[in-house]
Amino acid sequence: MLKDITLGQYYPADSILHKLDPRVKLFGTMIYIISLFSFRGIPAFVLATIFLISIIRISKVPFSYMVKGLKSIVVLMIITGIFNLFLTQGEVLVQIWVFKITYEGIKNAVLMVVRLIYLIIGTSLMTLTTTPNQLTDGLEKALMPLEKIKLPVHEIAMMMSIALRFIPILVEETDKIMKAQMARGADFESGNIIKKAKAMIPLLVPLFVSAFRRANDLAMAMEARCYHGGHGRTKMKPLAYGVADRKAYVVLVVYFVLMLVLRFVWVRFVG
């Protein structure tokens, strides 16, 4: 049951999006999120939709995979919708007791829910087309300038990739400890939340002990293989921009400029 957990939910496929440099995808996701929360008006909304649909098409990832990501935030979407619906001041359309639904409320609620949906689909497109390792590599390279202000960028990236490597191992270990405890009569399933939380203690203590032991072993193994931080280190798979990456950057910049222009025009002439 615990083995089903997958992190990073990478979907292997042969598409342009999969082959792009992770830095491009990180930058693209950032641009896209900014554009989502700054756009105004129907034309900009249409443009964002076209952009999203085209990258979904390019990615070759089945749409159902993205919808899966949406399920986890249904509650959040409902709450956001309700708050916007009832708490926005403006022209009252319907009034039930103290609750009133305004025209602006409906507009805001729809807008926020759509934004959230687009946000989730957009970001999950990045994680679906990028392996966790590529992501850490991309982050490391993209954040390299911060090394100048003494931020240990390489070390953070190394920690992330080691964490990713050990998640399945620790999950398996949790499973093993759980079964061992259950064999001796431990009960993880019944009772209220407090009782369940208490039942977790005999699970977490051995797990932590073992994690520390593993960390110790791993540190020694890394040292034995001459690991001494990022200094003087070469890369087996160095990141390098290709033609497709440059084109992607151009597309992203054009998209962003268009969104900004549409926002400006809308605010100026429509209100």
């Binding site: 072993d217 193994a221 890394m222 280190r233």
Partner: peptide, 22 residues
């Protein structure tokens, strides 16, 4: 388990050479 660093076999084998600047 406690001495394999990377999550792909070839990357793990490359870890040592990376460290010594090959």
């Amino acid at each position: 388990d406690n001495q394999i660093i990377a999550s792909v076999v070839e990357e793990d084998v490359g870890f040592g050479p990376e460290n010594i600047g090959v």
